[in-house]
């Protein structure tokens, strides 16, 4: 896995500008170091959507508000969690000590890498879909009115701490910092007019 300079530049709020000269050299160097530091890991599980919720017992995600609107009439969904690992955070802390520019570049590189990784994870998940099924876009706690508190159930239901080493801080941040968790609804359509999955 890698990302190109233009993708990293977007996460540095450079719009469509592509780094040149000294900046391009710095970004390339830090990107290569970041690639050596990451340990991507992912886990997903398929759950039925039952009684307006996913999961059971102590780990239950209520489906309401904007999440309900997003999922529509999905009868099943994937819970997914992926990360590029704690060693990336250590790398980012190290380079941030002596340079604000390096801190910013590392941060943007990590953001670009986890996005790219999660796109790949979605591709993997698509492999196991039944005929006539397609994936909705990822929907994460914090989007719309889907509460951050849902992280507890979401990560618990995929056993994220054990499976991929992702856990929550007291203020509900995911750690390692470059991690993504989401619900991905499974849409069923008649097999004869199977649409392309949304991107």
């Amino acid at each position: 896995m890698t990302v190109d300079l233009a993708e990293i530049a977007r996460y540095m709020r450079m719009g469509r500008s592509v780094p040149e000269g000294a900046l391009a050299e710095r970004v390339e160097k830090l990107r290569d170091e970041a690639l050596a530091a990451i340990r991507p890991a992912r886990v997903w599980r398929r759950f039925p959507v039952e009684g307006g919720a996913i999961g059971s017992g102590g780990l239950r995600i209520e489906i309401s508000g904007t999440l309900a609107k997003h999922l529509g009439d999905c009868r099943a969904a994937y819970l997914v969690c992926g990360t590029i690992g704690a060693a990336f955070d250590a790398f980012q802390r190290r380079v941030s000590v002596s340079s604000g520019a390096d801190a910013l570049i590392a941060q943007a590189t990590g953001a670009a890498l986890i996005e790219k990784f999660m796109d790949g994870v979605e591709d993997e998940i698509r492999e196991e879909l039944a005929p006539g099924e397609s994936l909705l876009q990822r929907y994460s706690p914090g989007y719309g009115d889907f509460p951050l508190e849902a992280q507890r159930a979401l990560l618990g239901l995929v056993d994220a701490p054990h499976a991929v080493g992702v856990s929550l801080t007291g203020s509900l941040l995911m750690v390692p910092s470059k991690s993504v968790s989401a619900i991905i609804g499974i849409r069923r359509v008649a097999p004869e007019n199977e649409p392309e999955t949304q991107q």
Binding site: D89, R93, P161, V175
Partner: peptide
């Protein structure tokens, strides 16, 4: 087994 929390410095535990 583990606590399921990530200790400092990567986490906040």
């Amino acid at each position: 087994g583990p606590t399921g929390r990530l200790l400092k410095p990567s986490g906040d535990f």
